[in-house]
């Protein structure tokens, strides 16, 4: 309901139904979308992305779009992007998801993790225009774990599920602090100033939150 209101209230945004009347040749896409919505509700993002990777499945892609695009946009706008450039970046991120779905590795990351890192890197490239140095997994100089036990690897989506549950049990002030730190590109001292809290309080709250999240993962790993 909120979604519908928000769409109609925004100037320049043509509601889906009106668009249909004007552009009837998109009838097929509309049907596809309706089915995509149902599938998105039934299938996990991991299943949807596998369908995109293996069958170039547009319906599955629409499901992913519906799930993530509005959230990526909210994320980018929190980071200070104006609506137009946030919109461009969202489309850019979702196109990247389409083109690189084959490189997604569910053992390494949950879909949400993967999409978060794509959105984060695009934001840094485009909005901040700085580089974010990253290690190279193929680098011969990389130091690896002494004993490799591939079986001990936890299913990445399971880890994200645990994190999700753990975040839900955090006290409100710890959860909103995590969001500030992740999504608003501000230093701890700026956050402390804005919340009217001593820096030490911000740091200890964050530490408490991280300790709880870590404990939630410990039973897994």
């Amino acid at each position: 309901m909120l979604n519908a209101l928000a769409t109609e209230a925004r100037p320049g945004v043509v509601p889906a139904k009106a668009a249909l009347v004007i552009r009837p040749r998109q009838e097929i896409q509309r049907l596809m979308r309706a089915e995509a919505s149902e599938r998105a509700a039934e299938q996990t993002p991991e299943e949807l992305i596998a369908a995109v990777a293996e069958q170039r499945d547009r319906e599955a892609f629409i499901g992913l779009f519906r799930l993530f695009a509005p959230r990526i946009k909210a994320y980018l706008m929190r980071q200070g992007a104006d609506p137009a450039s946030a919109e461009d970046l969202v489309q850019d991120v979702m196109l990247t998801v389409w083109h690189r779905a084959g490189q997604f590795d569910r053992r390494k990351a949950a879909v949400s993790t993967w999409i978060f890192t794509i959105a984060r890197n695009r934001r840094i490239d485009t909005l901040r225009r700085i580089r974010r140095p990253e290690f190279d997994p193929e680098d011969p100089a990389l130091v690896r774990e002494p004993e490799t036990a591939p079986d001990a690897h936890v299913e990445a989506s399971e880890r994200s599920k645990r994190l999700h549950e753990a975040v839900a049990t955090l006290p409100k002030e710890q959860e909103s602090l995590l969001r500030l730190v992740y999504f608003e590109d501000k230093s701890h001292s700026v956050i402390a100033e804005e919340l009217g809290l001593p820096l030490g309080t911000v740091k200890s709250r964050l530490r408490l939150a991280m300790a709880k999240l870590r404990a939630a993962l410990e039973t897994l790993e």
């Binding site: 990351a109 949400s112 978060f116 890192t117």
Partner: peptide
């Protein structure tokens, strides 16, 4: 990064 994804979701 997984936490970032969870917060994004």
């Amino acid at each position: 990064e997984a936490l970032g994804g969870v917060l994004l979701e």
